[in-house]
């Protein structure tokens, strides 16, 4: 516990200013284009263009760990289950591996749970500086009554959630009702108060990368602190083409407003190698400032295990096994 405090002191993350949003600029939204095949070509060749080896790979994987929103979103979640997860969040990597790498302790970026698990998570993370994120607004479909969705945010904030992952109404995107999307997002943002808000676009349900890019932009205009791909419950979750479309929207928003909005791919990222590719893509398209938990998160549950094994391989020179690392 003391160590984590120390780490927080050692590695101050300059929290970027929150996104105040801006008026909905429909001319800008309509001008946004996303050429699917070109985007696919870019991401298809990226792994071949960027390779991270040796100590650099180990460092990058540790960085990836600090960006993980360690997540459990299951119907059978209990306080005990969440306690285990929080323990893993505090000490995601075996101490001997960190020592061998001459690294101070690290923690994950956040723990992400449903509303009812917020209080136990907050309790188990007290004093660690690790924020609790709550999925909200009728997650994952977002089709519950609007006032209840807003109320859900408020409840979760009251319960101690520092971050709220809201889901947008996909129908506003599919129907081209950008004003409605903007208004909804605005309301969610307001309900969050001091809590940071991540807008889950459910990109697998938006029909096209152009819609993904436009929805990203509208949510940022409405004040999202982060934009996030998916709930993890759609049939298609985070993909590299979707990621490229969203981070380019973030870059455009930053260029126009000076505000840095965070990015969170969620669902389907389970391999250390995937994490490296995502980090390289973020580094290429957004720059090093985004390679920090303040602006980048992985929404993932099984990714950490693979990274731990890779780290042990780096330290020992031998391929590792899952049972050599603590369960979460």
């Amino acid at each position: 516990m003391t160590q984590t405090h120390l780490q927080a002191a050692q590695l101050p993350t300059v929290a970027p200013a929150r996104n105040p949003g801006m008026p909905l600029d429909m001319a800008w939204v309509r001008a946004v284009q996303a050429n699917t095949s070109a985007i696919e070509r870019r991401v298809a060749t990226l792994p071949g263009r960027r390779s991270v080896k040796g100590p650099h790979q180990a460092a990058w994987l540790l960085r990836a760990i600090t960006c993980i929103d360690l997540t459990t979103l299951a119907g059978d979640d209990t306080a005990g289950r969440v306690a285990r997860l929080c323990a893993k969040a505090r000490q995601p990597v075996r101490h001997d591996l960190l020592a061998a790498l001459d690294m101070p302790p690290v923690t994950v970026g956040a723990v992400c749970v449903y509303h009812d698990m917020v209080a136990p998570a907050v309790a188990h993370l007290e004093g660690t500086g690790i924020p609790v994120a709550a999925v909200s607004t009728g997650f994952p479909a977002g089709l519950s009554p609007f006032h209840l969705r807003v109320a859900e945010i408020e409840e979760s904030v009251r319960a101690g959630a520092a971050e709220i992952d809201i889901v947008i109404s996909r129908r506003h995107v599919l129907g081209g009702d950008w004003q409605a999307l903007y208004d909804e997002m605005r309301a969610f943002r307001a309900a969050c108060g001091e809590a940071h808000v991540k807008a889950i676009l459910a990109t697998g349900e938006l029909g096209s990368l152009r819609n993904v890019a436009r929805a990203s932009l509208v949510c940022m205009m409405a004040g999202a602190d982060f934009i996030k791909t998916s709930t993890g419950k759609e049939s298609v979750n985070a993909t590299l083409p979707v990621t490229l479309s969203m981070v380019r929207a973030i870059r455009a928003y930053h260029a126009r407003t000076g505000v840095a909005v965070g990015y969170k791919p969620a669902g389907g990222i389970s391999k250390a190698r995937d994490a490296l590719i995502y980090l390289a893509l973020i580094k290429e398209e957004l720059g090093d400032a985004w390679l920090r938990p303040a602006l980048f998160r992985f929404g993932a549950s099984s990714l950490l295990g693979d990274i731990e094994r890779q780290l042990e391989h780096h330290v020992s020179g031998y391929y590792s096994a899952g049972h050599r690392h603590a369960a979460g």
């Binding site: 390779s51 650099h56 460092a59 990058w60 540790l62």
Partner: peptide, 10 residues
């Protein structure tokens, strides 16, 4: 590693 963790160099 500690240093690269900060710089995130390739």
């Amino acid at each position: 590693v500690r240093e690269i963790f900060e710089t995130m160099a390739y």
